[in-house]
Design a binder for these strands. Sequence first.
RNA 1: CGGGACGUGGCUCAGUCUGGUAGAGCACAGCGUUCGGGACGCUGGGGUCGCCGGUUCAAAUCCGGCCGUCCCGACCA
Length: 571
Amino acid sequence: MFLPTLREAPAEAEVPSHKLMLRAGMIRKLASGIYSYLPLGLRVIRKVERIIREEMDRAGAQEVLLPAIQPRELWDKSGRWNVYGKELLRFKDRHDHHYCIAPTHEEVITDVVRREVRSYRQLPLILYQIQTKFRDEIRPRFGIMRGREFGMKDAYSFDADDEGAEKSYQRMYEAYCRIFKRCGLKFKVVEAETGPIGGSFSHEFMVLADTGEDAIVSCSECHYAANAEKAEVTSPDPASSLSTPLKPLEKVYTPEIKAVSEVSEFLGVFPQELVKTLIFQTDDGVVAALVRGDHEINHVKLRNFLGSHVLELADEQTIVGVTGAPVGFAGAIGLHNIRIIADNAIRGMRNFVMGANEKDFHYINVNLDRDFKVDSFGDVRMITSQDRCPKCGGLIQFFRGIEVGHVFKLGTKYSEALNATYLDKEGKERLLVMGCYGIGVGRTVAAAIEQNHDSDGIIFPITIAPFQVIILPLDMSDRMIAETAESLYKSLISKEIEVLLDDRQEWAGIKFKDGDLIGIPIRVTIGRKTLDKGSLEVTLRSKRATHLVKPHEAPSFIEELIKKEIYDQTE
RNA sequence: CGGGACGUGGCUCAGUCUGGUAGAGCACAGCGUUCGGGACGCUGGGGUCGCCGGUUCAAAUCCGGCCGUCCCGACCA
């Protein structure tokens, strides 16, 4: 088998899954965010795909395969040629026609379905495909966790009405739970933002891991869980300070003091007594956003609140132009001709600190209305651990997660844009109601490794392991050991057990190390020491528990062990 | 796109400051000893020092440009 393992991790790898996949000879990099899968890696990918196919088919979805290269016209119709941005890789063919490499397949699938589906009798319909997609990520990282080219399963549902769409969504949701459970993952389902895909609501399937790119929150009391950027802040304004009498506004000298931490330290106040003023560039001009010093602005919320496509922190020049001061001294007092948005938490503040729009100066004892006016208040900040659950008021907990699946209820966004309709019972023309459901296949593998490894290597859940069993004959030059290994290999194969025989002329230590590294769940060690006593060793990678077994009993013992492992994992 | 770091044999890295014969460990090939947790000995092969240009008697080393990779940030399924 072509299985080039590495003793040391290449310098480019940062997180455990990336390092281990390289070291275990699963993948190799071709360019930034673009990887080749070697035999071992491909086997794991195929395992995950098989589970996905089984569960999709069971849920009544049918597999198709759609083009990866798509003409611009299709993307113009949905309006996404312009909206999608630089992530969409575009190019021209020899006739100068524009094409893109599909980052997702809503357009084509809707196009296929609208041509073929005429009647409500053909509904509901769920189609899915597993294929390579391309998104020209700003910063690919963590190996195949955030690659540019990546394997993805995407499913699309078409229903006659909202009620039907709801059922399809539910069905996919349940299939997803089964898929990730079968892959041996510990995951959470959270409410999420819909992003450029669009739609009315969505859930993300998050694999819990410290190295996850997403922050998620969940309630300690009820079932509420959400992506941190989605999580609503409903905490009441701390009204206590509102009874404090207003003090007179005062300008203080704060040389070279800019960051919130510097200002609060310099003035001897808490960060929550400061107000940060952030200047943003939007679709229609520059906007100022105010949040409390210890809070963080939530870009998604602010963008939604403003209804703007573009939302970027303004560059230094713009800030100087608008505030008249260098970055770090912006404030709301004296800001004219620009919209001022404030987070709800600002309402409850009295006598706070704010930039003076003048180099090296801040105001203290600033107060709303008296000193400046806010155009509108809203929930535009990130939730914190001090906030309460928006559903039940319980305590909020934070986790890190890797997004492996995302389900969206799309509604009629694409059917409207591409005119995908059917005739109902009354013969009236109506829009198809859609949903879309993605799973990152490679990312699921990376997440599984992120969640299941130790200092020696990967510990694959048996359902997605490249092989279920690895046989290690410690000395291939020993006739009896070699023969015992060969015959065990054959009898396991005949039981349709996936087994790898390490028949290399290598040191025992190397075989053990490689075996641990590539993470095969069950190891059979055949060596002089125990063979002389008439037995083999069967070891579980996960628990390091060893059983001594007679050679002729080994095949059925292993078969039972595999069944038990699969059962334990999916119970 | 902004900030930072890096690019020397397949891998990990030294050498660059202070210009003067291109190195180590691992890996690889051969022979021998060996064979239960990354052995040992001997021998050997392998490098346009990322690319282009400049300075110099002389450049891996100094200067300029470009390319690539990684990290942090902005952004994003």
